[in-house]
Design a protein around this nucleic acid. Structure first.
Lengths: 200, 200
DNA sequence: CCGAAAATGGACCCGCAAGTCCAAACTCCG
DNA sequence: CGGAGTTTGGACTTGCGGGTCCATTTTCGG
């Protein structure tokens, strides 16, 4: 009862999402007007509302999902293979690198902050992202425990929760202060702590 | 060249700010219309623009400053007296309590996220808040080092930076997931780590 | 090659909320 | 009390931008 898009239609839809992603990255969620997206993608009002019946809301949600997925993709293959200290270090480096490059433009943050207002769906997207992210970290810790590289008495879930929170806060502070110091401190100190308890 | 407000005027101005603060806490930054503030405070357009010539922008900035100050005030007198482990614990409890009570409503977060867009001034306010916050934590750590309760080889600045980031992330996750777990994990694990190195 | 369904373009509508303006009412000092 | 300056009310203007509509063109299965 839903899909009735031809090949071409699918392509147009994708083009609109891509354009919206770019537009939002450049100007921020609040500043984006539908017209801008249309201009950039060479599409018309009719098309946009044809593929996104609920208008802006729906488009924004699609963009949010896209960006949320991207966050994790950008951390691969490191995030899924936290099986040795060098691997953790590589992951750490990737995070720093990624957010340093991204700088002050965090498309998700806008949605993240006002989560629940923009849409109930936005909440779900962010929650899902965090959930997946934390799960990956937890698994990494568990694996390190299985090899004895992290003390067995560490609560993997809590440690992962704390680390994830630290990362989020680090990024947030990067956004407000422009400095990567906080993110670095969190990652380095946390990894040090995790390392320190091992092989007692 | 600036002030020309009588006693009564000053009062009205304050009333508007207070009303705006309340309104934003209830409905979020995005959803606030000037009209709402006027209705709530029993004032008129003329008054608002009389006291805030730059309109919404200026009002929002005043609100942001107010809220930023409040964040630190809410942590007193604990934050300025992190001089013993029980004191740290009391501070931890206050933080949990405060954010648990606040729940999903974080007035600053809206401004925080889009910092730099809403206004260049917003950036300064948030940066200032973080700076003062971190400074207080750093001082707490230094004091504990002076009494030997925290190992001397801990880098107070970095540790404070990491803790602050953790707190911010914890609050952010509280906002998106509705659970306080992350904030708790950060505080408890960080304090444990700080404690553990002492009196070696 | 045909017709139903999908894709496209773009003119138009419409409500909302920020900001403007000015006249009337106060306040306060000399 | 007088009048300069401040405060107040609220009607009015304005522009923006999301959403609607429909006529036209294109696609695609049979």
């Amino acid at each position: 009862m839903t899909r009735a898009f031809t090949r071409k239609g699918e392509a147009t839809r994708a083009r609109i999402v891509t354009g919206a992603v770019a537009e939002i990255r450049e100007r921020g969620v609040d500043e984006v007007r539908l017209e801008d997206v249309l201009a950039r993608t060479g599409t018309s009002k009719g098309q946009l509302f044809h593929y996104f019946p609920d208008g802006k809301e729906e488009l924004l949600l699609a963009v949010a999902q896209h960006e949320a997925d991207q966050v994790l993709i950008d951390q691969e293959p490191m995030l899924s293979n936290l099986t040795s200290w060098p691997a953790w270090q590589a992951w750490r480096d990737r995070l720093i690198e990624r957010y340093l490059a991204q700088g002050v433009k965090c498309p998700l943050n806008g949605l993240l902050g006002q989560t629940g207002r923009r849409a109930p769906g936005a909440q779900a997207i962010v929650t899902g992202l965090m959930w997946r992210w934390q799960k990956a970290i937890t698994e990494g810790i568990r694996h390190m425990q299985s090899t004895g590289d992290i003390a067995a008495d560490v609560d993997a879930d809590r440690a992962a929760a704390a680390l994830l929170a630290g990362i989020q806060g680090g990024v947030l502070l990067l956004l407000s202060t422009g400095k990567i110091d906080h993110l670095e401190a969190v990652l380095d100190l946390t990894l040090d702590t995790l390392r320190s308890g091992a092989r007692t």
